[in-house]
Structures are given as C-alpha cells and as structure tokens.
C-alpha cells in the first residue's frame, strides 16, 4: 500500500511559525487538496513533503517509512511541479522532457511526443521553450508529470496560467493518475474537478 502520512509537522521560517502541527493520512487513489490564505504555508508544506525543506519536528512517512531514511529513493517516486516550471528556455519542449525524465529512466522519443500531444502542445515540440506562452510552458511541465509516471504527484498551483481547456486537461490528468492507483498533493485555490471520494481537503490556517 503506497500511502503518504504526515504527523505533527512543525516548521519555523525566521520568526514565523509556518507549519503548526500539520497531520494527515493519504491513501492511494486520493488527492490531498491543500487550501489556505496567501502566506498560510501551502508552498512550504509541499516543499517539506518533497524533502526540499527540512522539518523542525514531526515526520513524513511513505509506505510507513520515514522519508528521511532514504530521501533519494523517496524522491525517485515523486513528481513535483512548483511555481517555476523547471524548463530551460534555450532547449525545445522535446529536449526539455528528454533531459529531465531521462535523468531517471530511459525515455523513448515516441513517448515524449505522446505526452506532449496529451497536453496539447505537440505542435510546439521543436520550438525553444523560451518562445512559448506561459500557459504553453505550463502544459509542457504537465507533460513531464505524465512522463515521469511517479506514484505521488506534488503540485503547487498547477492551474496557474492555464486556460479553460488547460484546467479541464489538468483535471483529467489528475483523475487518470488517481484511478491508476497514484496519490497527489495539490495546493490550489481553484476547485478540482474530482469526485468527493477522491478528495481529501486540508485547510492551513
């Protein structure tokens, strides 16, 4: 059973107590929707779950093991999409996906093309990412998410810059990921088009 659990997460940023005892258990096929006002610590929580920000207290467990025991192994099972898309402007969309997913596993050119087609940017595969619009770049980043085939998605405002079609695409990608037995943590202000059984709301105060 792949499951993500957090127990009593505590984190200070300078003089601010950002995470005050956050706890949750998230099973397969479920999506943790993190909400809260600006500055409530959504991004900090997501980065702490990835292991990018060290916690002061509390533990994050994946399959029952504390992620700090083998952070690299845990990180190879997650796909993270932050505020920045993590794309190089000088490389094409196709090259970007090859050089990011390709650091983890073999990835065929056809698979990259299929992922770009799935997110609706197949026509821009050979263009430098610098020339794409903000929404198109977000779609390329979503294609990386599809390609990485990770068990856990951690998404920070994934819908930013996406048009209406893009929001729908994001919803269907999430739904397919959850149906395949994956789990997701999503920080967003927009409602996610998922069934109530799939959603696990978490409000940060």
């Amino acid at each position: 059973m792949s499951q993500l659990s957090a127990e009593n997460l505590q984190l200070w940023r300078g003089e601010t107590h950002v995470l005050r005892g956050v706890s949750f258990v998230l099973g397969r096929g479920r999506c943790l929707q993190v909400t809260g006002s600006n500055g409530a610590g959504k991004t900090t929580l997501l980065r702490a779950l990835c292991g990018l920000v060290p916690l002061e207290d509390g533990s994050v467990r994946w399959d029952g093991n504390d992620i700090r025991n083998d952070l690299t192994a845990f990180q190879s099972e997650i796909a993270y999409l932050g505020h920045d898309n993590g794309l190089k402007g000088d490389l094409t969309a196709h090259e970007n996906l090859y050089y990011s997913v390709g650091l983890q596993r073999e990835v065929a050119a056809q698979a990259i093309g299929a992922a770009l087609a799935r997110t609706g940017v197949a026509g821009h595969a050979a263009a430098p990412v610098r020339r794409l619009s903000a929404g198109q770049r977000r779609r390329v980043a979503l294609a990386r998410l599809v390609l990485r085939a990770a068990a856990l998605w951690i998404l920070d405002e994934p819908g930013s810059n996406l048009d209406e079609g893009g929001q729908g695409l994001l919803g269907s990608l999430l739904d397919a990921h959850l149906r395949a037995g994956g789990a997701a943590v999503v920080a967003t202000h927009q409602p996610l088009p998922l069934s109530p059984a799939q959603l696990h709301p978490l409000l940060l105060a």
Binding site: T72, Q75, H83, K88
Partner: peptide, 22 residues
C-alpha cells in the same frame, strides 16, 4: 544562477539521483 531561477535545479534535486554527483 539560471538553473536556480527557472526551477530546473530543484527538479535536479528531486530526480532521485545522488545530488552531490550531479
């Protein structure tokens, strides 16, 4: 600098390979 600004460095940190080696 560039890798830090466009977010590729954090993707590198999370790619599941030894970060020091990369």
């Amino acid at each position: 600098r560039d890798d830090g600004q466009d977010g590729t460095l954090e993707q590198l940190a999370l790619c599941g390979q030894p970060f020091a080696g990369l």
